[in-house]
Simulated assay, not measured.
Amino acid sequence: MSEHTGTHFDAPLHFVKGAAAIDSVALQTFFGRMTKIDARDCGPREAVGVERIKTFEAEHGEIRAGDAVFFHFGWDRFWEDPGDHPSFLSDWPGLSREASQYLLDRRVRIVGSDCLSLDCFGSTDFPAHNMMLEAGVLIGENFARLGDVPVFSFLITLPLPIAGGSGSPIRAVAAFAKGAHSNTLSSIAI
């Protein structure tokens, strides 16, 4: 199994020589507030711009330092029917250079999506990977069921402690209040 199989994190070492491997990332990085931005209306190979993020913040509040920010492109829908699997493997949207910088300015800890890469399909310069990983921000890829998660939740993940690993498969869970006035927590494997 590859370090980048299924739902996984990319560690800085994935793109940055001599950077942190997955086994040296602080454990507190893998737990904390998660922000989900709906981007299902993005077209194939479309790069999310800053305006989408600013519109989200105007509606829901600012992204906070230390947040894990995930973009729900709806790409996980291609796993429901085996006949759609080839669609999962091509033309996915991603993050623009400007949106990547905006999130770095917000001092996020993780950025991810439900696609095979945070960069658009066919990217040759990989702006999201290069910028995020250079800054020590983890990248989450192939997350499922983001559509079942509220805008804000608590992300719980743990990677395998692969010595010198450039990434790791993970089990990801989003925890959130079941109702607006409830003390009961719901959780969804993502």
Score class of each variant (00 low, 15 high):
136 G>I: 06
136 G>C: 10
161 P>W: 10
122 G>V: 04
98 E>D: 12
127 P>A: 01
136 G>F: 05
100 S>D: 00
118 L>H: 05
153 S>W: 13
113 S>K: 09
100 S>K: 00
129 H>Y: 02
158 L>Y: 07
132 M>C: 03
150 P>L: 11
162 I>H: 11
113 S>E: 08
165 G>M: 00
103 L>N: 02
131 M>C: 05
129 H>L: 02
125 D>E: 11
130 N>E: 00
138 L>G: 09
116 L>F: 12
104 L>E: 02
102 Y>R: 10
158 L>R: 14
131 M>Q: 14
151 V>D: 05
161 P>L: 09
158 L>G: 12
165 G>W: 01
151 V>W: 06
138 L>D: 03
154 F>S: 08
117 S>F: 09
156 I>Y: 09
147 G>K: 13
146 L>D: 04
109 R>A: 14
164 G>N: 09
98 E>H: 06
162 I>F: 08
104 L>F: 02
138 L>N: 05
121 F>A: 14
161 P>C: 11
104 L>T: 03
159 P>E: 05
136 G>K: 04
158 L>H: 12
154 F>G: 05
137 V>K: 01
151 V>T: 14
99 A>F: 08
107 R>V: 03
135 A>E: 02
140 G>Y: 10
97 R>I: 05
165 G>C: 00
160 L>M: 10
107 R>S: 06
142 N>T: 12
148 D>Y: 12
137 V>I: 00
161 P>H: 10
106 R>H: 11
117 S>P: 06
143 F>V: 15
126 F>P: 00
122 G>Y: 05
134 E>Y: 10
141 E>K: 10
134 E>M: 13
98 E>W: 06
102 Y>T: 08
112 G>Q: 08
145 R>E: 12
137 V>P: 01
114 D>E: 08
104 L>W: 00
164 G>I: 07
111 V>G: 04
145 R>G: 11
130 N>Q: 01
98 E>R: 06
98 E>V: 04
113 S>Y: 09
147 G>Y: 14
132 M>T: 00
126 F>L: 03
108 V>W: 07
163 A>I: 05
147 G>E: 15
129 H>I: 01
138 L>A: 07
159 P>L: 03
110 I>A: 07
108 V>L: 07
96 S>T: 03
128 A>T: 02
138 L>R: 02
124 T>G: 13
113 S>G: 15
106 R>M: 08
134 E>P: 03
165 G>K: 00
109 R>C: 08
101 Q>E: 10
130 N>A: 00
156 I>V: 14
123 S>M: 12
